[in-house]
């Protein structure tokens, strides 16, 4: 390269058609688009406040979520000292909702993270390797696909016994196949693009190509999908708890609360609906946030 002269104006490329400002970069552009998207900003704010309330539950709820009293059973919303009322054993609903957010979010997000790591790895491997590896991984996943996800989760939970960690494990297993499928699809698409071929032609190793060229182009799509799974996961884990297969009483968890307040539906319908409303709002927010991300990341890269 030493023999090469520096910039030679005689061979210069055409004068630029674009303004010469430095480019903002892809992720910066995504960020700018997100900042303009009011709905996504709003739902993200709601989610952040839910997470903050969950983390700092003792600050937000002064009552003990486990301390009940026969005297204060099923008080309505607006009762002195219990502004969201009490449940069938007289425990404070606000405190239980705040503490319940912890377990519900953990039970909702952990399975998605686990399946993201395992499913993403398997999917990228299957997509990039192709051939026999792909066939083996994808056909195995097809077996799981044969069962409806909620039935599969119930079956695994039933097999492992109840408890939070078993519910998380069961949901992780349920979410791995769709995660594998989505990562396999986007990787297969990326793998056949010319720039991956060009990287192969430059004689670099498979790991280097995956790290520099494949992941940067598939990770966005996989993460967006994972975010949308969180909402489903929150609903499913609440469902498992509702059926008595997840979190065990007297732990506060939204699904479990929904179950135990079920009998009070005629006495205090508004109080009984509160855990359900929390589940609905949280999962809806995750869904809308994922939609917002998808929109922001879908930058039309072609001019």
């Amino acid at each position: 390269m030493a023999k090469l002269s520096a910039f030679d104006p005689a061979l210069a490329a055409p004068a630029d058609v674009l303004p010469a400002q430095p480019s903002p970069g892809y992720w910066k552009a995504v960020g700018q688009r997100l900042l303009r998207d009011k709905v996504t900003l709003a739902v993200t704010a709601i989610l952040l406040s839910i997470i903050i309330i969950a983390i700092f539950a003792p600050v937000f709820a002064i009552q003990d979520p486990l301390a009940g009293s026969v005297m204060r059973r099923l008080k309505p919303i607006g009762t002195e000292g219990h502004w969201l009322g009490t449940d069938e054993t007289g425990r404070d609903i606000w405190a239980r909702l705040c503490y319940g957010a912890r377990l519900s979010l953990i039970a909702g997000m952990t399975p998605v993270m686990i399946s993201l790591v395992i499913g993403g790895f398997l999917g990228v491997t299957a997509g990039y390797m192709g051939g026999l590896v792909n066939t083996m991984i994808m056909r195995t996943m097809d077996v799981f696909y044969a069962f409806p996800s909620i039935l599969l989760a119930i079956a695994i939970c039933g097999l492992l016994g109840n408890g939070l960690s078993n519910a998380i494990l069961a949901l992780s297993i349920v979410f791995i196949p769709p995660m594998v499928r989505i990562s396999e699809t986007v990787t297969t698409q990326a793998r056949h693009l010319d720039f991956v071929e060009a990287a192969r032609a430059s004689g670099t190793t498979t790991m280097q190509i995956i790290r520099y060229h494949v992941l940067s182009n598939v990770l966005g799509a996989i993460l967006v999908y994972a975010t949308s799974l969180i909402s489903l996961s929150i609903i499913l884990s609440a469902g498992l708890s509702f059926l008595g297969l997840g979190v065990t009483p007297p732990q506060p968890e939204w699904g479990l609360m929904l179950n135990s307040l079920r009998q009070a539906i005629y006495v205090q319908p508004l109080v009984a609906a509160l855990p359900g409303a929390c589940i609905f709002v949280t999962s809806m927010c995750f869904n809308l946030m994922s939609d917002g991300f998808r929109g922001a990341m879908d930058v039309k890269l072609n001019k």
């Binding site: 892809y26 720039f195 060009a198 940067s216 890269l301």
Partner: peptide
């Protein structure tokens, strides 16, 4: 390659 766009990594 022929396709100048698809032969460059859009994220780099």
């Amino acid at each position: 390659f022929q396709d100048s766009f698809s032969s460059l990594n859009p994220r780099m």
